[in-house]
Computed example of a mutant assay.
Amino acid sequence: MIHVSPISAFNDNYIWLLSCSDSNTAWVVDPGDPTPVNQYLKQHQLTLAGVLITHHHYDHVGGLQALVKQHNAITYGPASEHIEGIQHSLSAGDTLSVLGTEFQVLEVGGHTRGHIAYYSDQLLDQPTLFCGDTLFAGGCGRLFEGTPQQMYQSLSQIAALPANTLIYCAHEYTLANLQFANAVEPNNGKLLQRIQQVKQLRAESKPSVPSLLSEELETNPFLRSHQTTVQAAATQHAGKPLDNPIDVFATIRRWKDNF
């Protein structure tokens, strides 16, 4: 049986560790810091076999070369981004095997141009996505390199996955994201309920992720730019009529940047 465990790093990063109960082998996703990874491996008597990278930002790759040197781990990452230490470059539609489980690569640019995500319908009892900084619980990544259209298309690709997909994002931003979502849709009952649930989790020092894609579709404004309530909020914020989902998305993304 495969387990997915969060390793906290920096102020709010999650490094995801995949391990198998039948062996002492592990993989990690986006190790920005090698120290907590090595501590976890030692504590649980695990051997690091591989590393998956979603994009080039330092808080996701800062520990990569040290871990490769220490553990002789195999590494995978996006083909269109230059990242020191990547041995196998991946593009949309590529597949790879992790702990005997097949993953499919999705290209989800926007936060960075070459950002990728790793999707499997075999890893756990339900579909699983490691999406880095593209989709967050209740939010999405800033557009540092890509365009609103690119990010909208990336998020639409994720939104089309099975509704029971587990979303493993890379940051504990959920409560702040949901507070913004509430400014966009103050009358969204599902959202209000989710805010209370996340507050309780954080009060107990528990991660608010992974989330379910179904709850993102109900409460995340960046997946809801086709909804009339989100379009109305974007129109009011922009001071002009907006009904094209990409324009709506671009407006609420700029809104969030200054929220």
Rank of each mutant, 00 (worst) to 15 (best):
D121M: 08
P148E: 08
L123M: 12
F136Q: 05
N164A: 03
Q150N: 08
A159Y: 10
V184N: 00
V184Q: 00
Q157I: 12
E185W: 01
H171M: 13
N164S: 08
E185S: 11
Q149L: 15
G132R: 05
Q126S: 11
L191M: 09
T174D: 02
Q122F: 09
T134V: 13
G141I: 07
L129F: 11
L123R: 06
Q196H: 13
P148D: 08
Q200D: 14
L135A: 02
P127A: 02
F144E: 14
C169F: 04
I195R: 10
A159F: 08
C131W: 00
Q179T: 14
I167D: 01
Q122T: 14
L166H: 05
L191F: 08
S156F: 07
N177K: 07
T134M: 07
Q157V: 12
K199S: 12
L123I: 12
P186S: 02
A183M: 08
Q179F: 12
L124R: 09
I167Q: 00
A160F: 08
Y168G: 02
P186R: 05
Y152N: 04
Y173N: 15
T128F: 00
R194T: 11
K190I: 06
Y173H: 14
Q149C: 11
A160I: 12
P162I: 06
Q197H: 13
T134Q: 02
A163C: 10
S154V: 05
G139V: 05
K190Q: 14
A160L: 10
D121S: 14
R194G: 02
D133N: 14
C169S: 15
Y168A: 03
A181F: 04
F180R: 04
N187F: 13
Q196E: 15
Q153L: 13
P186E: 03
T128L: 03
Y168H: 14
T174M: 05
Q196G: 13
G138T: 04
N187V: 08
A159R: 15
E172Y: 01
L166P: 02
I167F: 01
S154N: 04
E185M: 14
L155W: 03
L155C: 03
G141L: 04
N188S: 05
R194F: 09
L155G: 01
C169T: 15
R194M: 12
V198H: 03
Q122D: 14
I167M: 06
P186D: 04
L155Q: 02
M151S: 10
A181Q: 07
A137N: 05
C140V: 01
Q126T: 13
P127W: 04
Q150P: 06
C140W: 00
Q157L: 15
Y173F: 15
Q179A: 10
I195T: 13
F130M: 08
Q157W: 10
S154H: 01
Q179H: 15
L175T: 10
K199D: 12
N182L: 13
L135G: 03
G132H: 03
Q179E: 15
A137D: 00
D125Q: 14
L192D: 12
A181W: 03
D121L: 09
L178Q: 09
G141P: 08
S154D: 02
Y173A: 11
I158L: 05
M151V: 07
K190L: 12
A176S: 12
G132N: 07
Q149K: 15
T165I: 06
Q193C: 11
I167T: 02
G141N: 06
L175N: 07
T174F: 02
T147E: 04
Q179S: 11
N177P: 09
T134W: 00
D121A: 12
Q150S: 08
S156Q: 15
R142G: 13
L161K: 00
R194E: 13
T147S: 15
